[in-house]
Design a protein around this nucleic acid. Sequence first.
DNA 1: CCGGAGTCTGTGATTTCCCTGAGAAACTCA
DNA 2: TGAGTTTCTCAGGGAAATCACAGACTCCGG
Lengths: 246, 246
Amino acid sequence: MTTTSPQGRTELLRPDGSPVRVLVVDDELSITELLSMALRYEGWQIRSAGDGTGAIQTARDFRPDAVVLDMMLPDMDGLAVLGRLRRDLPDVPVLFLTAKDAVEDRIAGLTAGGDDYVTKPFSLEEVVARLRGLIRRSGAADRRSDSMLVVGDLTLDEDSHEVSRSGQNIHLTATEFELLRFLMRNPRRVLSKAQILDRVWSYDFGGQANVVELYISYLRRKIDAGREPMIHTRRGAGYLIKPAVS
Amino acid sequence: MTTTSPQGRTELLRPDGSPVRVLVVDDELSITELLSMALRYEGWQIRSAGDGTGAIQTARDFRPDAVVLDMMLPDMDGLAVLGRLRRDLPDVPVLFLTAKDAVEDRIAGLTAGGDDYVTKPFSLEEVVARLRGLIRRSGAADRRSDSMLVVGDLTLDEDSHEVSRSGQNIHLTATEFELLRFLMRNPRRVLSKAQILDRVWSYDFGGQANVVELYISYLRRKIDAGREPMIHTRRGAGYLIKPAVS
DNA sequence: CCGGAGTCTGTGATTTCCCTGAGAAACTCA
DNA sequence: TGAGTTTCTCAGGGAAATCACAGACTCCGG
């Protein structure tokens, strides 16, 4: 089931209407904090654990609909944790967190079962999007919730990563896609550059804030080119997207 | 839940009807005083603390619905305070106060969980508006309270920053927007130039008092242009806004 | 009807914010 | 490895917003 909150954001809910439950497992406190904050904001119910044993214990009585699991834990190997988790919750989808240089093929095998992974450092939009995908596909949430974002004649498919305006296909780079997704998930809402940076860029990004301006400019070229503009600047406040027919 | 006070101002209330509670944390007494006064005026219940340890203690038994937190505290790092706060109150939204030049180096993740920040020197209207937004979205207040201000045929949307009169869209600059918001939050009520200056301009503004006259004049051009005027001058007292149907 | 206090608004200087071209660095994929 | 793509920095240009100043206007009491 999906429902619409006062802000106009659609939320994932379980079939019985209760909020989705997610367990976050990472040994770095700053990471669990960051993820907890962001995922709570999605309207989900969050528990966190700092090691494998804690994760397994918490999972047992929390019975999460999805798990975010760091592969590098102090006490146990990620695979071992996964095995134990699956004994109690055979169908729970897992989103792995892994270092960029980790052995890819080991992960590849794991994700065959419908699980997914993101590499550190990640962006919150990416984690949220992948979790939403996992939960949606696992059937823990209502199946009808689909993966299309629509604002005016602009559509974005979160599954196929396809974007089109008035039927015309548009190719976006990864960053452009995430930025547009964030905008479209918050239509008619002014988003500050800081908010955008916090959600779309990875948490350790140390660069200039004007990358946001730059990518907005890229998006405009591809989406608004020669058409009625949908991306608007609110000077001194931020940016927003809305249907062209004002 | 929203209700209307004797002065005609709508207030945020918690679902049980009790006033919203806000904790203010800053080491400068002048700032906590200023904020406490302004926030009490909103009908909220305020406690303040001058350092991190005090903040955490106070939070524990005061259980605020929102926290205003200076990033620069004598005893602890702002992030450390945040972590400790979140342990006791996982969902409390936080409004960070930060120096203008500190914005660059790292506020990463701060707005990610739905939290927000303002830079010093701030205007009280800005702080109040952002706090209201945070509280509204956190669900501590009734979800039905929305982001629209309406006076007669004039509407102002705090989310999209859109203003319209009788359906016609009006573009305002940031300062014009804040001034109009202040007027509309106090309809049919005379506001002196000093009051307006104190609320809408930042607390260290050192300029001429006639910027208020100037911006009132800008607003009239955009809002009252060729229509029945809604913004009225009370000579020697101040300005007020009210529906045109005198 | 006059004068002064209070208010309004045109002009333009200054500042702030935003946009975008150019190119370096990093990454991807064959 | 090397070509093409993507990400990001830097810096200049330009537009918009803010504000000071000053003269015009208005209201009101004498």
